[in-house]
Design a protein around this nucleic acid. Sequence first.
DNA 1: TACAGTCGGGG
DNA 2: GTGTACGACTGTA
Length: 788
Amino acid sequence: MAELTGWLLDLYPDPQAGAVLWLLGEDGKRHRLLQGFPLTFYAAGPNEQLRQLWRYLQSQPEVVELSRTERRDLFCPQPLPVLAAQVAHPAQQPGLFRRAAGRFPELNFYDADLSLALHHAAAHGTFPLARCRVETDAENKVQALQVLDTPWDLEPPPPPLRLLRLEPDVDPAHAPPKYVVVRGERLACRLSLAHPRPLLLNLSAILRQQDPDLLLTLWGDTWLLPHLLELGQKWRLPLPLSRDPGMGVEHRPERTYMAYGQVIYRGRQVYLFGRWHIDGCNAMLFHEYGLDGVYELARVTSLPVQSAARLSPGSGISAMQMVTALRQGVLVPWHKQQAELPKSAAELMISDQGGLVYQPLSGLHRDVAEIDFISMYPSIMRHFNISPETVTHPENPSPLRGEGVGLRGETEPTSPPDGAEPGVRGDWRLVPQLGLVINQGQPGLIPLTLAPLLDKRLALKQRQAELPAWDPRRQVCKAKATAHKWLLVTCFGYLGYKNARFGRIEAHQAVTAYGREALLQAKEAAEDMGFSVLHMYVDGLWVQKPGVSQPGQLQPLLLEIAERTGLPIALDGIYRWVAFLPSRVDGRVPVANRYFGTFQDGSLKLRGVEARRGDTPPWIARRQVALIEALAQLADDTLAHDLLPWLLRWLSHALAELRSGRIPSEQLLAAQKLSRALDEYRTPSPAARAAAQLASEGKHLRAGQRVRFLYTLGEPGVHAWDLPTPPDRRSLDLARYQELLIRAVGAVVQPFGIAEDELRLRARGSAPNVTFWPLPRLRENIAARVAT
DNA sequence: TACAGTCGGGG
DNA sequence: GTGTACGACTGTA
């Protein structure tokens, strides 16, 4: 009997028996442990069918223990009689279940398609990088397992992970790479791809010697690792990419699917066993929160690190809900099977509203405070206990399979005298406008899942604010908070997602209804306290009051709003000035989400303008940001009087730069996503034409993939960036880029009284090489910004 | 002018 | 393996 303490690295089914646990021991060694871990799935339905299923499962080769028992379905008040099938070896469960489900399509199956990691998290409280104490026998079999920390610890000590980076020297989609750049502990080298044998031998030696826990690559999923594995096969020199020699690697093919209301493309993926592979180019949102965010996501969601790095946050929050359900003994349905409650047309009109959006007072405003509800929708779900099983129709409480009840047991509707809070009677709360009621008796599945997340995110942000800017822990806190943000944001969308296991459209609508009400309450509070409300957008409002320009002066309003709504709210900042833009199509109409401004601390906020769009060429975006930064530095009197001549010089300077040919082509690249297959385009967009160019060179892109291109003269008007030959510099469509720049600049200066047409006229007449003289007070600042 | 195609924002 | 619904805007015909 031996005792081991360390960090949990990896967890997966052993092909023969039980679960494999990889532990990074405090002794510095990596331990491969085995643990017996049977998995149970359930089936419910007509008795006769369950009996047949029983006989069927008994006849199968897998070792299965069968029993009849009762479990709780989230939507049924009464326990559900089920058949429990306990499969001895987790690796055999998916296959057995697939056969059973195919044979008995009318039965409802539960807990049947969850990964081993989630089952293990529910059963043992494990999560990736959890600190564990393990007792093992002589054969490295786990006899006892104790988890020593929780995902909710704010700053767990970082495990001593070993990292190895592998990168091709160039983007393989753009040009054939020549080298693999390798960087590890006291190691940096470049291996030639032209000589496969030495490459493979060297890489194998490096992997053995360094024995990294994490292989961090660029294009490792989509190109590098598949390429290396292929070479390894061809030369009969297998690479030890996985730490577990018996497991090889797992390939997941590329795929496109519909989500976010659009087509999404995910490249192929390569998963390892016993160590992790993360491809910095194929990891969703990776650039936003980095490795620290990935570890944090893995810890709180219980998803393996390699999955947490690649999956969208939707699957993260979904995993958390499933673990909550498993821990509560609530069945996790195999397929989500829910229809919306029937609704009249009039109800549809009201309930299908989303967030409240106002039309701002367009133009330039000074000393404006922006206040935002913190994680508004998740906070609403928690505060009002909104969850698929708690929201229901009062006159029709049993629409599907049962009435809304709390998680921890049955709660009968009661109607005692009116409670203290308006809209609440006993255990029931009436949702404004929708005619829905929410059971308040027991915390729902979603609020239970969300509460620790909301608390931790606030704690992280607070900790981040306490730490000095130079402290590296501050960046770590920030990365973690950013990762949490995405979990919280998608949790709301998931309520309304038709295929979510724990989604229900009525719950989704209840959330937005409360959101609208909270915003209106906030508006009333602000107006009661003498503020004028310039704009409101879903969870934020922009307010102004003569004489109010310091953060402290907003505190009474914040307290009042928190008091009236019950929801947390904070000051985002006070703008020195903010400009709300009118519609480009009709200048009389303001639009809700195109604005920019500068806060008192000098930081900028931009929404909806060209610089925020992913398809804007970087050079255009940077010119626009630089211009806003310059405007932020200008004194009020300059803004009023001397702006036009200065601006025209600024513009000529930028246009001269464009014509000079000194801007790197990458800076002029537009990037757009293909929304469909090429032959499905009815009118060929620039992106479609660029994709067609690539297709004729044998590079076929699929719907959901991005295509990068330059605007060029003549037909077809674009030049795809990943074509083998770059375009002639002289064929660049400079007039097109000039127009894009003028539009971006026009949007910024419109609130300052300068019309876009004027810029266009003057630009045409300007000499190509006008010397640009910054205003004296601006010179320093602009030099600094342009450099970045 | 109509409509097809693409993007954002939440934080 | 998993977010929605919608409006603004641009380019093409």
